[in-house]
Design a binder for these strands. Structure first.
Lengths: 344, 344
DNA sequence: TTGTAAGCGTTATCAC
DNA sequence: GTGATAACGCTTACAA
């Protein structure tokens, strides 16, 4: 009933060669943009490709070049906005550069799970790795596995052997904390992220820097897990001992859970307690009160990660890209309205 | 300084063969679990592999088998919880089944962008496709490109040539709407998702079914874009004409934006207006008031999508998997507390 | 149970 | 400029 467009096997470079009346090698040259080819010949080849709907065979190419043109992403997300956005941007950027992306998501942050995920990526022959996961642990495992693949990760301190993205999380956290200090707060608590994440560590560091610089009392930080549920839990505990007037949460989700708990405890945010978050996720401005937070350019982070990794793969010198500094976004939950603070 | 663990080239099947003193073919047999091999021989081969740290070459295998062991995911997300969670689950499930996942994210939902993304996946030689994107448009484009790859998509109606996941979005939406009706609402508005998404279409359908069944007035639905910002915008418009007492939003983000707008307009949720969402994203229970919503098992959806696609790839008969019915979660924003409704 | 031969579709290397 | 020839590492025949 239907015409026979294909004869079983997909057209190869030799089929194109036959039709264009050249050697298969010439077809290969056209494919790879080799300079010394007569225009007329090239055109004939291109026409033949078009006619045959020729598509190069990735496996064959990978076999002979031993390059997979694939980069791996090691992620550890349960659907959070930040990582998801960065990963999407990584895919876009990679695609644009002619690369494929393979993501392995960590089921747990145990060494075993990390080994599993890395093995999977290695099996896939990834040429490089972008780590969006508990970096501290991942680095350990990487070292232990003796895997020799170039990788890129988020980093805030300059000390590392591999290439790292320069997102100044410390500066962002410092700004957030300073904002609270400027509002007149003296007793500020930090609800931190898991400390095996570089971001979490850096945000705590920025927090402490600001606190110490202002010569304020250092409250023991609470170590959270990035989730809103944990934020709620922490908020419940916190509202028992009210020896603080403000909280800097390491991310917005925890901040939102926190505010919920404060509400439940009869505390008014921001009248009684000020809360600042980090990330500026899309709902941040729609909760009540709108959350003051630190804006991150997640897509830009993804783009830069790819650029960095590709330059590494190409053996280019480290291009000193400017640092991304997350920007404080004041939206009201801890805005200047609240000069009259209630200290406990 | 360091020992020389590898001599440039990665060990191949032949290196293993030489060390185990068998033919390379025997090694291949061990690799593929061929039955007729003497145990002693197999062990020798395995030992040799171990000693050489042999890893099979994916490209070579793919070249000769013309199977990439890769499935493609066409997504269209900007970091939303639902799709991101499903995609993560897809990766987990695929990995467990020995498959790799390649995701192409739609920059826009224009035909050109869809063609781009699909071409990328085809280039990658994906064996099958999971569509988590504006399916209506994607199907059109797929048909137009004459691509012959098995694909799976979310689907609520039974009418389709390809395999579809049975997630009964209609039932979920109907339950949500019925909940509002049970509370005594007569004037209910639907804030819908983009109609080229099957989910959006199905949720509107479920809404309308419930409305019609209860013989209520049908308000013209508002067509949104899934974002909280749009929800806010819609809420602002809606609060001008207050000819309704409840809104069923097609997803939680829009519902949250909506509530924000109502708050700004001086309307109290749920005293003045009831709002129900869809998805049950992690922040849903932490906003004020907690959002009544319809819970979805995003990870389960991802897992089933993979199972379905793989069974298709293996040519297995369609296993009639049970339908997933999203469950209504009542959390308070429109709970029975609000018997006294204010109608406009 | 094992080995030998051929070929998958491409690029690299050397001729002409 | 272009063409032959030899890999790349594996699996699918077929033979022993």
């Amino acid at each position: 009933m239907s015409p026979e467009p294909q004869k079983g096997r997909a057209p190869s470079i030799r089929d194109v060669a036959r039709l264009a009346d050249v050697s298969h090698q010439t077809v290969s040259r056209v494919l790879n943009g080799h300079p010394s080819i007569r225009d007329e010949t090239r055109q004939r080849v291109l026409d033949a490709m078009e006619a045959l709907k020729y598509r190069p065979n990735r496996a064959a190419r990978a076999l002979v070049t031993s390059r997979s043109r694939t980069i791996g992403v090691l992620s550890a997300t349960t659907g959070e906005y930040g990582p998801s956005s960065s990963i999407a941007a990584i895919e876009d950027a990679a695609r644009e550069a002619g690369y494929f992306v393979n993501t392995a998501n960590l089921a747990a942050s145990t060494p075993a799970a990390i080994v599993d995920a890395l093995k999977h990526l290695v099996l896939q022959d990834v040429e490089g790795l972008i780590v969006m996961a508990p970096q501290v642990r991942v680095f350990d495992v990487l070292a232990g596995m003796a895997i020799d693949i170039p990788y890129v990760s988020l980093q805030s301190t300059g000390q590392s052997d591999h290439r790292a993205l320069a997102v100044d999380q410390i500066a962002g956290a410092r700004a957030a904390t300073q904002h609270l200090i400027d509002l007149g707060h003296h007793e500020i608590v930090h609800l931190a992220g898991p400390q095996d994440w570089i971001e979490a560590e850096a945000r705590m560091r920025g927090f402490l820097d600001a606190i110490i610089e202002a010569d304020l009392r250092t409250h023991p930080p609470i170590l959270g897990d990035w989730t809103a549920d944990f934020g709620y839990y922490a908020g419940r505990e916190l509202s028992r001992y009210r020896d603080f007037s403000a909280v800097f949460a390491a991310n917005d989700l925890m901040a939102i859970g926190l505010m919920h708990a404060f509400r439940d405890a009869g505390l008014d945010v921001p009248r009684d307690v000020s809360v600042v978050g980090f990330d500026d996720i899309p709902v941040a401005q729609h909760v009540s009160p709108p959350l003051t937070t630190v804006h991150q350019e997640f897509r830009e982070v993804g783009r830069r990660a790819v650029a960095l990794l590709l330059s590494e793969l190409r053996g280019e010198p480290v291009s000193q890209s400017e640092e991304i500094v997350p920007a404080l976004v004041v939206r009201g939950s801890s805005g200047p309205v609240h000069a009259a603070l209630v200290h406990y």
